[in-house]
Design a binder for these strands. Sequence first.
RNA 1: GCCGGGAUAGCUCAGCUGGUAGAGCAACGCAUUCGUAAUGCGUGGGUCGUGGGUUCGAGUCCCAUUCCCGGCUCCA
Length: 634
Amino acid sequence: MIVFLSMNNANTCSGCGNSSKDPAQVTNNAPRDPLSEVLLRHSAAHIMAAAMLRLFPDAKIDIGPATETGFYYDFDLEHKLTPEDLVRLEAEMKVIINENQPFERLEVSREEAYRIFRERGQDYKLSRLADIPEGETVTIYRNGEFVDLCRGPHVRYSKQVKAVKLLSIAGAYYRGSEKNKQLQRIYGTAFESKEALEAYLNQMEEAKKRDHRKLGKELKLFHIDDAVGQGLILWAPKGAILRTELQKFILEELEKQGYVQVMTPHIGKLGLFRTSGHFPYYKDAQFMPIIDKEAFELLRNENVSCAELSNRLDKGEIDGFLLKPMNCPMHISLYQSEPHSYRDLPVRMAEFGTVYRWEQSGELNGMTRVRGFTQDDAHIFCTEDQLAKEIQGCLHIVNVIFDTLHMQDYRVRVSLRDPNSDKYVGRDELWKKAEAALREAAVKLGRPFSEAPGEAAFYGPKIDFIIKDAIGREWQLGTVQVDYNLPERFNLTYIGSDNAEHRPIMVHRAPFGSLERFTAVLIEHFAGNFPTWLSPEQVRLLPINDSLNDYADTLLKQLKTKGVRASVDGQSDKLGAKIRRAELEKVPYMLVVGQKEQESGEVSVRARANKALEGNTTLESFLEKLIVEIKERR
RNA sequence: GCCGGGAUAGCUCAGCUGGUAGAGCAACGCAUUCGUAAUGCGUGGGUCGUGGGUUCGAGUCCCAUUCCCGGCUCCA
């Protein structure tokens, strides 16, 4: 998975030295107007590292690239950085900026570079230097007393960094591997002007207001309770309505495409998952197996230790049950429950299947990363020849979903084999065919997509749909994956026209991905202002005073008869208060009923958020339009 | 899991260097019956995440632990 703020991208100080530009040119080309934000931020990173070395001379510096929205620098130092240190560092950075240090680019020999960083005790830089391929030019950048191994380019003078702010401290493993030492990383951001920085910070504040965790609580959509467990979602009544509507929506689409619905249990015997390979291979990411009572009694009588128990479970000497980490083995069992002719294929088996995975505690996040979630899952069993068309069908559904929900800001990634690896199962020609089919389907989708060689699963290539959350983190939603592995492991077959057994290909696909994560993204996408068809409450009747409550109730009945989700605000409040309440709860339509309306048999329509008074109309004509709006999912 | 920060009423938050807990909103009660984003008054509500410790005394200091937040790592 490509992670936001990836530290492995090429734009780091460490990857320096391959610039083909001559120094003079770079210096002359240092942009003036507008100043590239990347340049600015990368320079700010150097300034921060310089400030760090002034305050903590023993600090060892690693790398400090610009990111999409700012920059960071990784340090190794004894002192544990605190938020107060950020204030001091920021102050020192301002001193450096005001010194108006020129940024100087120097081409040096490899030996010279080694000498410079060895003298300064910068071991990490020596290691990074060793990464630079022989024959490439080594460049360093100097500003004031600070020297960094760096490809550049940079601003010309430190004063060009006009607005800078340090944001947070984080741990980051050296070279991105948890086997290495954890360094201290400081994140910050820089802009051309104080105004631009302010604007960015305000924008971040605004973005936080649509955080699904905040809105989920405010709008009573879901709840996570310590007493239930980390990463386990309780869908509150309003959230459940939202989810039910999403499920109805997708069921309709699946119906159109010839899917059949199935339902399978939440647990299954360990043996099933041994066959599929999920156990014990992915044991670390699963809940512990459940041992049946008789087996447990026997083990207890034998005084078996935990280690021994674990060992025997792994080896398959003890059976038990597993909370399913995936639905596929269950669907495969259904497929296998009867013989299949090529005439039956493709079999498209769908289920809103709830799966459980043991995510690391530090990775849990609201509804986006959880330990139990429901996939809008389906498995397609098809022949080689049918594969391309089936993949296109899958992408079509994804397209319908994103269109209907007005979500166009997503990224498509086609994950392919790493040509230099042999970890993959499945015949070479099949892979080529599947990769071509995925690519072709992606092209037909008509959206820009990227290809990611080496990102494919060992069992087949895939397409993923990736979207950003309110604060810029990327999450994978839908996925379409070709699988050559499971049909093999389960020995799946169908009888071909030649009356011989053949191996079907499997496609795993989940256009939403998980309902939890998708709902989180939806909440943030709409900032809680769901389209009417998804709104937990679609219409609220606002009687002007208590004497109109009964009349409002008769209107409510009419709305409910038509299947509209509505309520009456019968509290003894002024109209303004009722409107405010409905606005805060983001109800799409408010119908004000007063004396006038009762006499004329009309309602006064007020639409959410735009405060538009749509004028008075009869309930019937309002309903007529509303029903169409809901039916068409607008 | 790792690094850093946090946890005070249902929600949002205040409570300085230790002296025995407070506001707004919500809830409840009473009054008010009101025309397009907050009517007024009153009442109840907290073993300050949990468990230890220091102290005459702990929301405040120390240790442990659980959970949350931001990163890192991971994500079949």
